[in-house]
């Protein structure tokens, strides 16, 4: 119940921010709504148990991309006045996008997703918590010293499947090629942005 409440809150922030982005007339106000929407999405990642992604979302989207967009808005300052902020195809665009949302929603609701059973290593966090509780219970039952318990807890924290550890392993083993390619893409985009914006 609590989880659903939290989900409703962050989903409302994300979708409300998105609606604010497209509804605001001033593009600067749009950018501020965009920040709110990004924060909501970070909350959704946190509820999903992807803690590293939530932090990344805050750092990169809220911290970097939003500032980039705000800089672009201010550098290309354009007095909008009474001009329309939407073009003539806005009504058509509304019809198309709302039918896309409706189709995706019906599809998501009606599809019989192969949900993973909760006991098959479902939640990393709960599994980790369970192991921690189990190890501490075992250590107290065996009357081992506090230092042993501490060592085992530290070992657990390092060896257990925390999100960051698993993500780092995945990036350096299975997904090494895509990791290298994305690094190259970032480098090329960096140089390209400098070259384009400089002259």
């Amino acid at each position: 119940m609590m989880e659903m409440l939290a989900f409703g809150l962050v989903a409302g922030v994300a979708v409300g921010g998105a609606i604010g982005v497209v509804a605001a007339r001033n593009v600067f106000v749009s950018a501020l709504w965009l920040v709110l929407s990004f924060i909501g999405v970070a909350g959704i990642y946190a509820i999903l148990g992807a803690d590293f992604l939530a932090a990344t979302q805050v750092l990169i989207y809220v911290g970097a991309i939003s500032v980039l967009i705000l800089f672009a808005v201010m550098l290309t300052h354009h007095v909008m006045g009474d001009e329309r902020s939407n073009n003539r195809q806005a009504f058509l665009a509304f019809i198309v996008s709302s039918s896309v949302v409706a189709a995706l929603g019906v599809l998501a609701y009606r599809t019989d997703w192969p949900i993973r059973p909760a006991d098959a290593g479902g939640s990393v966090v709960t599994a980790m918590r369970g192991d921690l509780a189990g190890s501490s219970a075992a250590s107290t039952a065996a009357q081992t010293g506090a230092s042993t318990a501490l060592t085992s807890t530290v070992d657990l924290a390092l060896n257990q499947d925390s999100n960051v550890v698993r993500l780092g392993q995945a990036l350096m083993t299975e997904h090494l090629l895509s990791f290298e390619i994305i690094s190259l893409v970032l480098l090329v985009a960096l140089i390209g942005a400098i070259v384009i914006a400089r002259d």
């Binding site: 994300a14 979708v15 998105a18 609606i19 982005v21 497209v22 929407s37 999405v41 001009e83 329309r84 902020s85 939407n86 073009n87 195809q89 806005a90 058509l92 665009a93 509304f94 198309v96 996008s97 709302s98 896309v100 949302v101 995706l104």
Partner: peptide, 13 residues
């Protein structure tokens, strides 16, 4: 979110 973004991308001047 996708639909809202689609509307923004299609309709913004």
């Amino acid at each position: 979110l996708f639909g809202t973004g689609l509307f923004g991308a299609l309709s913004r001047r």
